[in-house]
């Protein structure tokens, strides 16, 4: 019985160490405030695409920042780009920052695991074990919901070029299908030799040059 507890304790300590390593890597770090100020700078220069991009990035780190939300709306309105609709689920699921949600998920795994282990070694009452298991599952669900709500943003791109032509194939010549305005947010579905396959909110799809559309999150880091 003691050795089982030792295993669990070792796992917790290792996982905490792993999380702390991840958090303590301080190279090339940025904060929500830095991104927000950068977006403001771009907005003052009239580079609305870059401004929207950095506001979107800042809102990932600080989802409840009213200034970010206000300036994002303001810049989109100034560039005559409509605001993407947000559902209630989206608003609720993105209430907490991804970092907090991540640790909640880890805690949920910990509590759920301990409850299962307690049931194995007959530690505590059955009601307590069940309550702990439900709590752990709920905490995990919070993380999963946040991931579902963030998924479109993780695969979104912002048009940073003025009047970006959208073509039928990933080549720089030929007739453009339509033109994307700067600061428009699109869904990036594929990449091929310097071109991105995008889909607009209205459902129109086509290829744009990678230099004209910036992903909210760099492609390589997205699973």
């Amino acid at each position: 019985m003691k050795s089982a507890l030792k295993w669990a304790a070792l796992g917790v300590s290792l996982s905490l160490a792993s999380g702390s390593i991840c958090a303590q890597d301080t190279e090339n770090e940025f904060s929500a405030a830095n991104l927000y100020n950068l977006a403001n700078l771009y907005a003052r220069q009239g580079k609305f695409g870059m401004a929207v991009l950095n506001y979107e990035r800042a809102s990932l780190l600080a989802p409840n920042d009213r200034d970010i939300e206000a300036n994002l709306k303001y810049v989109r309105a100034a560039s005559h780009v409509s605001e993407p609709p947000r559902s209630t689920f989206d608003l609720v699921a993105r209430r907490l920052s991804p970092l907090t949600v991540s640790w909640i998920g880890v805690l949920g795994v910990l509590i759920g695991g301990l409850s299962v282990l307690a049931a194995q070694i007959s530690f505590g009452g059955a009601w307590m074990q069940r309550a702990a298991l439900v709590l752990g599952i709920l905490m995990l669900a919070v993380t999963v919901c946040n991931g579902i709500a963030l998924w479109p943003t993780l695969h979104a791109g912002v048009v940073i070029g003025a009047q970006t032509p959208v073509r039928v194939s990933p080549v720089p010549m030929g007739e453009a299908l339509f033109v994307l305005p700067e600061a428009e947010t699109v869904k990036v579905t594929a990449e091929h030799e310097g071109f991105l396959l995008i889909k607009t909110r209205s459902g129109r799809a086509g290829w744009v040059s990678r230099s004209a559309v910036a992903r909210v999150i760099a492609h390589k880091s997205i699973p």
Binding site: G11, I21, C22, D25, T26, S31, L61, A62, P98, I217
Partner: peptide, 27 residues
């Protein structure tokens, strides 16, 4: 403010995912 190295949510980063994975393995 809090500094972050990546904009990808930690629960989707491989290094952070090691924590719950280790927990699950330990339990």
């Amino acid at each position: 403010g809090r500094l972050a190295r990546s904009l990808t949510p930690p629960y989707l980063q491989q290094r952070f995912l090691a924590a719950p994975c280790l927990l699950v393995l330990a339990f």
